[in-house]
């Protein structure tokens, strides 16, 4: 048990989790922005934009995140030589955020689209019937209902994103899963307690997110 407590002094466990949280927050913003744009593409009347949105979702959704992460560093940094910072630590952090954003944007897009799907046709027709043109109809009638309908899938995507920040280990980012690997490598006799520490850490972050999602979607559900 003593050895176990020493681990907390020796390794920066909190710092590693803080890295996962920072990755989550930034990638959540990134993927939400990109995903919203893609969702607008997918429901727009312009054929080519719809095609871009659809192919993006189909390609990204079917690619393992590990490959996106590895290829991002290997191809974009290694070959296209796009560097965000001369400080490697910051540079690969940015890469991890971008890879996570690209991957989860496909799911955000689908979540928003499914939210739009929950809005009955009659709502839009009614909006037009009372003389609202496209933009006001979308802003006042359709989108508010769509976003409320999309809370559950959006929340699930955020939870998935939180857990997927561990894959940033593949991009040379020092986060919790990588730290756990190092800790077990050097302290194999404490394997189980190290694992439980990290696992419970994730439970503490992830389970409240799930509860919040359920609560929000119940509270904001559109009664029909």
């Amino acid at each position: 048990m003593n050895g176990f407590l020493e681990l907390f002094a020796e390794y920066d466990i909190i710092g590693a989790f803080w890295m996962n949280i920072r990755l989550t927050i930034l990638a959540a913003i990134g993927s939400f922005a990109l995903g919203t744009v893609l969702a607008v593409f997918r429901i727009s009347p312009v054929g080519s934009l719809r095609a871009i949105g659809t192919s993006y979702v189909n390609v990204v959704r079917n690619t393992p995140l590990t490959i996106i992460m590895v290829l991002g560093v290997l191809a974009v940094w290694g070959q296209l030589k796009i560097t965000f910072s001369s400080d490697f630590e910051l540079n690969f952090f940015v890469y991890a955020v971008i890879a996570l954003s690209i991957y989860h944007a496909a799911f955000v897009c689908e979540a928003i689209r499914s939210g739009v799907n929950t809005v009955p046709q009659g709502q839009a027709e009614a909006a037009r019937a009372i003389g609202l043109s496209f933009l006001p109809a979308a802003r006042v009638v359709v989108l508010p209902q769509a976003l409320r309908g999309a809370i559950t899938p959006l929340g699930n995507t955020l939870i998935a994103l939180t857990k997927n920040t561990t894959v940033a280990a593949a991009a040379s980012v020092a986060e919790a899963s990588g730290l756990m690997k190092t800790m077990i490598e050097f302290n194999p006799n404490l394997m189980v307690s190290i694992f439980l520490t990290i696992a419970i850490g994730f439970c503490i972050i992830v389970i409240p997110m799930g509860l919040l999602t359920t609560w929000l979607s119940d509270k904001l559900a559109v009664a029909r």
Binding site: P64, E110, P153, N156, I159, A160, V206, G210, T213, T214
Partner: peptide, 13 residues
């Protein structure tokens, strides 16, 4: 149910 690599942590309705 199309989920992300790692799906929801709590029941989805």
């Amino acid at each position: 149910v199309t989920s992300t690599t790692m799906g929801p942590a709590l029941p989805v309705r």
